[in-house]
Amino acid sequence: MSDAYAHLHDAEQRRQNRKNAVPGRQVIIKIKRCDGPGKPSRWESFKVKTEAGSNVISCLKSIAANPVTTDGKQSTPVVWDSGCLEEVCGACTMVINGRVRQSCSCLIDEYAPREGDTLTLEPMSKFPVIRDLWVDRERMFHALKRVQAWVPIDGTYNLGAGPKESPEQQQTRYDLSECMTCGCCLEACPQFNLEEDEQAWDTAFIGAQAISQARLFNEHETGKRLKGERLDTLMGAGGVSDCGNAQNCVKVCPKGIPLTESIAAVGRSTTIHAVTRFFRGK
């Protein structure tokens, strides 16, 4: 498929960039900044000297230590969210050169290989900005509550082992369970929109992340106990039927989670659920 090719091309381009990157060069980091909710946005550019292995995080750190813009203006350290810096916590997600991804794994060599190249940073657009590049993703955790993304165990007392499981089933669940709630899938989704009002969270499209998590727990022997309730939620407003099949989610997922398969699997479950519910009468 052409887009798969484009992706390869992109990766190849990045590999080339990395090979040809000029050591010790200076690059421009252009950042969309905002002082807080309701405040206007503005662009600021900073010149940063790169070193071997520089990434967006190391650049933002060096800006924080000396926040002077390219036109010589003294500014303030840029605010951004980050955690593990290994692409497993999901915190440092932002929009880089127009595309959502984690900033820790964004190597400057791949994106700005030549002297004076510019890298553009923006906060995610589907979540309310707290300040600068930091956004509030509480809605994602709220969605996990809506789909009851947990295994309803009896308690933490010693009650023996969990259910046995085939390696294939484990692999299926593990792939889904790698979701770090980063929000890339939602940022890239044309059906998922910014909702400042928390009231709207329960009826606006819930997005691939929570749908896939619902599937994860529906796949677990004990987790299945809540399957009906999860499906009921996902059959309601903002549920799985609101998916528009643009399939951007699966292409931007940093963990390669088969999100579109999850959406289809939950679609199948809801079909069966609706039919059985109709004939069972409850």
Binding site: M1, S2, D3, A6, G98, R99, A188, P190, Q191, N193, A204, F205, D242, G244, N245, A246, Q247, N248, K251, V252
Partner: peptide
Amino acid sequence: TGKGNLPRYPHQDN
């Protein structure tokens, strides 16, 4: 209910 984003994500499916 949706907002297209083709310029940013010009994939075939999109």
